[in-house]
Write a protein that binds this DNA or RNA. Structure first.
Ligand SMILES: [Zn+2]
Ligand SMILES: [Zn+2]
Ligand SMILES: [Zn+2]
Ligand SMILES: [Zn+2]
Lengths: 134, 134
DNA sequence: CTACTAATGAGAACGGATCGCAAAAAGGAG
DNA sequence: CTCCTTTTTGCGATCCGTTCTCATTAGTAG
């Protein structure tokens, strides 16, 4: 399912995607809901969840699986990885991947049919680092 | 908090840790609960959760976050990574890491104080692969 | 043994995510 | 435009993994 093949382009779907693409924060569903509500005050949280799900299945958004206890979403579907602040939960992008990973060796070791991998960094974000230092 | 400094060594705690260490499946809390119940029929699920939490804080167990919608736990705290079957959720170990990751470059790019990273593979496990082929 | 405190069992509560359903909206045909 | 069909929405109920509460139990020091 692609953007073109999505059967209805509703105002809600449009605004949700637009908002997700214009934000760099990898928001949770309810964070996105709060932002979208400024444009569509009567939208429901369920609609946000449903559309995020649809967008993910269309390959137009990514679900960052349970970084913390809530799912986060990413409107940038290009290849990049993430770093998460252990203290405040903030998630930032890492576009230059300074890593070399050999999946073929994993296949030999495990017998799995490997379809991908995710490399995620964790640490303390600049803001939390500064707060700690004071 | 270390093993020695844990204030009480209860039978429940003992059995939970023992069971977790003797299992290779990276069980969820309720899977572990079912196994432990065979030895301690009156243990409660809450106790399993509480002790897994304690063990994690003592560095005696690992919580594998964001594998599916349930947390999974690992009694092997040595350095290794995991591969997860997208179809059935099974998690296996990968002890030989065929990957080279440069965290220092990430520090430069993001300004984070990087404390670690996790590399997780995903794919289809041997069992699910065979089922599909038939 | 007693006294003190941590841990347990049972169940209620919490919270993120999903579901069910009637109403609304989108799109197509004429 | 109207009429009809199908998708989507809003809203509330529900699910389910996890955490919390609290009276009771049990580990440990002395
Ligand atoms: Zn932070
Ligand atoms: Zn991103
Ligand atoms: Zn499998
Ligand atoms: Zn493991």
């Amino acid at each position: 399912m692609t953007e073109a093949s999505m059967q209805r382009i509703t105002r809600q779907r449009q605004v949700i995607l637009e908002t997700l693409r214009n934000v760099r924060t990898h928001p949770t569903a309810d964070e996105l809901y709060e932002i979208v509500r400024k444009k569509l005050p009567h939208i429901s949280l369920g609609t946000v969840y449903r559309n995020l799900d649809t967008l993910e299945r269309c390959g137009m958004a990514l679900r960052l699986d349970r970084v913390g206890n809530q799912a986060r979403f990413d409107g940038d579907t290009s290849q990049h990885c993430h770093i998460r602040c252990k203290q405040c939960g903030r998630v930032d992008d890492i576009f230059e991947t300074h890593a070399e990973v050999h999946a073929d060796a994993v296949v030999r070791e495990t017998g799995y049919q490997v379809t991908g991998f995710s490399l995620e960094f964790e640490g303390k974000c600049p803001t939390c680092k500064e707060i700690q230092d004071n």
